[in-house]
């Protein structure tokens, strides 16, 4: 599935919900289901700055793709991380760096969450793209 296909799928899923409570119920569910990050990846350099809760984001190359894993002490942030992973994980660094994450606005999260620095959604996106750029640079070296 391409990044945009995954985004469209999420938008369709969220279209089923009437209000924010239902949306969050779903996000909480995703958060609870996200596999916990291995303790060895919960290191300082994997911590995302600018969040009210601690968020860890781990990136690992697999063939020419990049895999993401994340964890947080707060369930909603974990659920949001789960959505980002679903969209961005297991794609090439070029695709990740280029991705236009329109689903955040389309499911209403942009307006609801991304404005404040406390929730970490914007920071997570930024960090995932930084990882992608770093791997891109690394792989383009002779």
């Amino acid at each position: 599935m391409t990044i945009n296909e995954a985004q469209d799928q999420i938008v369709d899923e969220f279209a089923l919900f009437d209000d924010w409570s239902d949306k969050y119920e779903y996000i909480i569910d995703l958060g609870k289901k996200l596999p916990p990050l291995d303790d060895r990846h919960k290191k300082e350099e994997n911590k995302i700055k600018g969040c009210q809760s601690t968020v860890w984001l781990h990136a690992e190359p697999k063939d020419d793709h990049l895999l993401f894993e994340a964890d947080s002490e707060a369930v909603i942030v974990k659920g949001l991380a789960s959505l980002l992973i679903r969209v961005l994980s297991d794609h090439s660094p070029e695709e990740i760096a280029r991705a236009n994450l329109s689903f955040i606005d389309r499911i209403g999260m942009g307006q609801h969450l991304a404005q404040t620095r406390s929730n970490g959604l914007a920071s997570m996106v930024k960090q995932m793209k930084l990882y992608a750029l770093a791997y891109q640079a690394k792989m383009s070296k002779p």
Binding site: S21, Y24, I28, Q52, S53, E73, A74, V75, I76, V77, L113, S118, N119
Partner: peptide, 9 residues
């Protein structure tokens, strides 16, 4: 329960 989750809900 993390305070952030409480605040958002």
């Amino acid at each position: 329960i993390h305070p952030q989750d409480i605040g958002i809900i």
